[in-house]
Computed example of a mutant assay.
Amino acid sequence: MGAPRPSPASSSTARTGRGSAGPPWASRPTSSMRASTRWWTPSAGSSGTAQHRWRGMSVAACAGLVERGDPDRFRAAMTAPVAAREKLFPLYAFNLEVARAPFVTKEPMIAEMRLQWWRDVVEEIVGGAPVRAHEVAAPLAQVVREAALPEAALDALVAARRWDIYSDPFEDQAALDAHVDATAGGLMWLSAKALGAGDDEEGPIRRAGFGHGVALWLMAIPGFEERGKRPLVDGRPEAVREFARRGLEALHDARKTRLSKAVVPALRAAWQAEGVLKRAVADPGRVAQGALTPGPAAGAAALALRAATGRW
């Protein structure tokens, strides 16, 4: 059974002012895709080379996409050193492009083709083939190849989005957990590995990603249901509370593990997750109401504190 249907006032359309309901990352930016370079300041040693200028503009295009389509991850990435942003923004833009693919058409076959296009891009990048001409594919290829990111995690992130094309519910809670791990968990692991995480850190980093993913999933429930989806295996308040509790437990498990300092900027993408999950545990009814996100001032203060103290 799905979660209780939200009232019109709590739907994604009402909360965001967009004309069509859906998860926040499913809508296309309303402005043109202009490359913004205000986040990127080349170092003295790189500003004079055409290669670095080209890379800066390519990554800036990714940053612009993320700023408009995934503003929370954008704000988190902006607290990272510039060198880390050059790795995070292409991965976040890739995730955004893949996440949007099922929502830009009502034709399942076209949506499947869009996802397959990205699976082919990943295969070609990992295989060393020429990179397709696309504003995200080129900088993504550089990050993937420099860090030797695993094809399996990249492909799983894309393949998991096939669920968004159709209206079928998850078979069971294990299937929903696997979806969250492949998407949010996979992206967290890829981002951290791009920043230098060791393979022995994958477990706790994926746990952090799972906790973040549960928070994102619960915030997206009203939008999913507006689209006629059944995003929860069990929508009863006690089941929603348990799902949120397990996400919170995953975050706490990850924080107990000593992880490389270099990966903190990737983990900081989960800066709002703990508060969101605690609200869902305290009052599962807030999920259907779309009332889990903190106010802008509180959210900005929390992120600033984490950045100032080097925490996530």
Results as ranks from 00 to 15, higher is better:
S36I: 04
T37A: 04
T37L: 15
T37S: 00
W39Y: 10
W39H: 10
W40A: 10
A44Q: 10
G45E: 07
G48E: 11
T49Q: 09
T49C: 07
T49W: 10
A50C: 01
Q51Y: 12
Q51F: 12
Q51L: 14
H52Y: 13
R53F: 05
W54Q: 11
W54H: 12
R55F: 15
G56Q: 07
G56F: 13
M57I: 12
V59I: 14
A60H: 00
A60M: 01
A63N: 03
G64P: 06
L65H: 08
L65N: 00
V66L: 09
D70K: 03
D70C: 03
P71C: 01
D72A: 07
R73M: 12
R73C: 11
F74Y: 13
F74W: 08
F74V: 03
R75M: 05
A76R: 02
A77F: 13
A77G: 06
A77S: 08
A77H: 05
M78R: 12
A80C: 10
V82D: 08
R85D: 03
E86N: 06
K87N: 13
K87A: 14
L88C: 03
L88V: 08
F89A: 02
P90W: 07
P90L: 01
Y92V: 05
A93H: 05
A93F: 02
F94C: 09
F94E: 09
N95Y: 06
L96Q: 13
L96G: 02
A99N: 06
A99H: 05
R100H: 09
R100F: 07
A101C: 09
P102D: 02
V104S: 15
T105Y: 06
T105L: 04
K106D: 15
K106R: 15
K106Q: 14
K106T: 15
E107N: 14
P108Q: 11
P108C: 13
P108N: 08
E112T: 01
E112M: 12
M113I: 11
R114D: 05
L115E: 01
Q116I: 14
Q116L: 15
W117D: 05
W118Y: 07
W118M: 04
R119V: 12
R119C: 14
D120K: 09
D120Y: 03
D120G: 11
D120C: 02
V121L: 07
E123L: 11
V126F: 12
G127P: 10
A129K: 12
P130M: 04
V131A: 01
R132A: 09
A133I: 12
A133G: 06
A133L: 11
V136D: 03
A137D: 03
A137L: 03
A138D: 13
Q142V: 05
V144L: 07
E146Y: 00
A148F: 11
A148M: 08
L149N: 02
E151Y: 02
A153W: 10
A153G: 03
D155T: 15
D155R: 13
A156H: 10
A156N: 06
L157K: 05
L157R: 11
